[in-house]
């Protein structure tokens, strides 16, 4: 998000020579072209997917495309029981740690924000939470711990890596 907007703003010529991909673009390409194959029997538990603001709303605003469909397509390739939090997508809730707030001392405000994410998670009651963002990963893990909820949190590429079938 920062890199992409920086490139577009200050180094537009970059795109004449190079191509850039988001994590989703790469995973979709690898899966759809058959460069990687995934074990469909590994992730049968109930998995909730969380949309990070950067890949969703902000990408949509800055680059005209929010990455809502891609991660869901990726999940659908090998996860049998994934669900959305409500609300999800463009109206989804931030984890509470966006905007660099993970790096500020205002932890109380951050936890207060996260109550919304926790409410959402409780409504779905998943066995695993999957997301594609380092900040969200940290913040949601912390919020779950604060609320004594024992639900693991994994990166989207983490479960892809775990499901890899190596020839």
């Amino acid at each position: 998000m920062a890199t992409r907007s920086g490139l577009e703003k200050w180094f537009p010529e970059f795109f004449e020579k190079h191509k850039a991909f988001t994590v989703f673009d790469l995973l979709v390409t690898y899966i759809s072209s058959g460069r990687i194959t995934l074990d469909k029997n590994l992730f049968t538990m109930k998995i909730a997917y969380h949309d990070p603001c950067n890949y969703g709303r902000k990408s949509e605003e800055k680059f005209g495309h929010g990455y809502y469909e891609e991660p869901r397509w990726i999940l659908s390739q090998f996860v049998s029981n994934w669900v959305d939090l409500y609300p999800a997508g463009a109206n989804g809730y931030c984890c509470g740690g966006g905007g660099g707030t993970m790096l500020t001392p205002y932890k109380e405000v951050r936890s207060h924000y996260s109550r919304k994410k926790i409410e959402q998670i409780k409504r779905v009651n998943p066995e695993l939470i999957v997301l594609p963002c380092h900040s969200c990963h940290g913040q949601i893990k912390q919020a779950l711990a604060e609320n004594n909820m024992d639900i693991p949190v994994k990166y989207l590429w983490e479960i892809v890596a775990e499901a890899l079938i190596m020839d």
Partner: peptide, 25 residues
């Protein structure tokens, strides 16, 4: 600062002659 840091990625791509970039986040 943001521009300098993005500029480093551009430099890598040029010096190492790399065609594709995976956005870090």
């Amino acid at each position: 600062a943001m521009k300098i840091i993005v500029g480093r990625i551009v430099d890598h791509m040029d010096t190492l002659r790399i065609e594709h970039l995976m956005y870090p986040e």
